[in-house]
Design a binder for these strands. Sequence first.
DNA 1: ACCGTCATGTAATCGGTTACATGATTCT
DNA 2: AGAATCATGTAACCGATTACATGACGGT
Lengths: 190, 190
Amino acid sequence: MVRLGRYVPYATLAGVSSPRLTETSYIVLGLIEQIGPATPYDLKRMAQLSTVNFWSVPHTQLYTECARLANEGLLSEHREEAGRRRRVYRLTPGGRRALERWRSEPSGELEEVRDVSILKLFFGGDPAELAATQLEAHRRQLKACEEMHAKLSVGEQDVPRGWLLALEAGIGHEREFIRFWSRAGKAESR
Amino acid sequence: MVRLGRYVPYATLAGVSSPRLTETSYIVLGLIEQIGPATPYDLKRMAQLSTVNFWSVPHTQLYTECARLANEGLLSEHREEAGRRRRVYRLTPGGRRALERWRSEPSGELEEVRDVSILKLFFGGDPAELAATQLEAHRRQLKACEEMHAKLSVGEQDVPRGWLLALEAGIGHEREFIRFWSRAGKAESR
DNA sequence: ACCGTCATGTAATCGGTTACATGATTCT
DNA sequence: AGAATCATGTAACCGATTACATGACGGT
């Protein structure tokens, strides 16, 4: 079986000092591109709501990541004068270039599945018991995804194509999980 | 869309001081259970070869993890007298209990997909280009999985049931990825 | 006025990742 | 004998996770 390149290291940016951009960085850059100038808190809501929910980022990291990207010159930072003095970030031209470069460069990397329940299965966990719990969870999740998809599809909203596709990917995997656990749960145990 | 519990924290072990067991810990415990007393290097080979390849662990971590588990009393450590003086680890009763508890406790956690290419798609990457590269990679990976599965299935080898199931899960997901990218790659771009 | 929840952070910690290094073996 | 590869670690670093904390605001 082929080794999966899991330890993807730094993205080195031609021409820029030495910014190590992780997926988190691109999520921040990408979200700001989509919604315009934003505070870390805006990003948090956006991420929750929209659909980076297939790749969640804890809110505390949004703060530090914004600061870092600003430090690297990929975002500009501006503090509000008013009471809260929140930091508002926006893309710099360099940030936009970095995002575009990343986005347009297809990668042959494969991700591992890394599902805890499958790990338990691997190490001898009882298929029927694992399946019962997992099936319920995946069915719920599938339902949530489908509802979200329906909501985004109605009318002529201007939902970016990528959002729908990503959601559809999620839906496909949920279905696959359901198929898998259905089979695994009832196969003869010997 | 439902929030996925991604930040699964510590597994607290009733009765034991304060061992924080991660998935890596259970991989180590589980592998040692399967192959008996082993050095970190044995674990590395085992992990590579067998099938924890759907959840890889870098070899350096096997060393530190073994040391930590020994420290927590879940493994016992014994140094060879001979030249290499390698450390050989084996399960203690406590370690075995911890493993069994973990394994038999089904969890409703869901994993996120976290696929970089889908992330690029989400942020506006070109479906056709991404699909081309991903399709090739997934096809190759699928082939490798299937070959491995065939190899493990022939004859009356005593391959643990979990190994086959985990492999089958991987195969299912690879097929799903292929379905997805096939569709995404050729859908009308507007 | 008080309470609960949302908003907005800061900071310590830690597992995971990368870098580096040396001793065995095997092959030519 | 030297080169290449396998075996076996050690250690620094850093992003991600957890813990903690306070201010604003809507409702009762």
